[in-house]
C-alpha cells in the first residue's frame, strides 16, 4: 500500500517494479533484441552510403570515383566490414521477429535455438558476401 500512501500511481497497487536494465543479467533474448535496434541504426548509415554511391554513379565518373575511393580505402573497408555484419544480423534476426509476429517460436528453448541459428546464419551470410565481393 506504500504507493497509495505516497500518492504516486494509485492504480498500480503493490505490483513489483519492472527489472532495471543496469541490474538485470544480460541474456541472449535481451542482448539480441538490443542488437536488433543497434544494427538497425547502423544499417541506416550504410543505406546513406549506398544511396550516395548510386547518386554519384548517375552524376558522372568524377563523383563516382570520389565515393569509390572512400569505400575502397582502409577506413572504407572497415566500415563495409561492419556494415555487412550489421546488415546480415538485422536480416536474420528480422526473419526471427517476423516468425514471432506470425505466432511461432515463443517457447524459451525455441527462442534460444532460433537466436543461435540467426547469429550463425548471419555470420555465414556475411562470409558469403565477402567471398562474392572479393572473387569478383
Amino acid at each position: 500500500m506504500s504507493n497509495v500512501e505516497t500518492g504516486a500511481d494509485v492504480g498500480r497497487g503493490n505490483r513489483p517494479l519492472s527489472p532495471h536494465l543496469q541490474v538485470y543479467k544480460p541474456q541472449i533474448t535481451s542482448v539480441m533484441s538490443a542488437f536488433h535496434r543497434i544494427t538497425g541504426v547502423g544499417n541506416s548509415i550504410g543505406a546513406v552510403l549506398v544511396a550516395w554511391w548510386f547518386i554519384a554513379a548517375a552524376t558522372g565518373e568524377g563523383a563516382f570515383d570520389f565515393i569509390n575511393g572512400l569505400l575502397t580505402s582502409w577506413l572504407g573497408h572497415l566500415v563495409l566490414l561492419g556494415f555487412t555484419f550489421s546488415l546480415c544480423y538485422h536480416l536474420c534476426n528480422g526473419i526471427r521477429h517476423l516468425l514471432w509476429d506470425a505466432g511461432y517460436g515463443f517457447e524459451l528453448d525455441q527462442v534460444k535455438t532460433t537466436g543461435i541459428m540467426a547469429i550463425v546464419a548471419a555470420g555465414l551470410m556475411a562470409l558469403g558476401l565477402f567471398i562474392v565481393g572479393w572473387a569478383n
Binding site: 549506398v50 554511391w53 554513379a57 565518373e61 563516382f64 570515383d65 569509390n68 569505400l71 575502397t72 563495409l80 546488415l87 558476401l129 562474392v132 565481393g133 569478383n136
Partner: peptide, 13 residues
C-alpha cells in the same frame, strides 16, 4: 546484394 557486392569497387564504366 549479390550484384551490389560484385559491382562494389569496380570502375565507373
Amino acid at each position: 546484394f549479390i550484384p551490389f557486392a560484385i559491382a562494389l569497387g569496380k570502375p565507373w564504366v
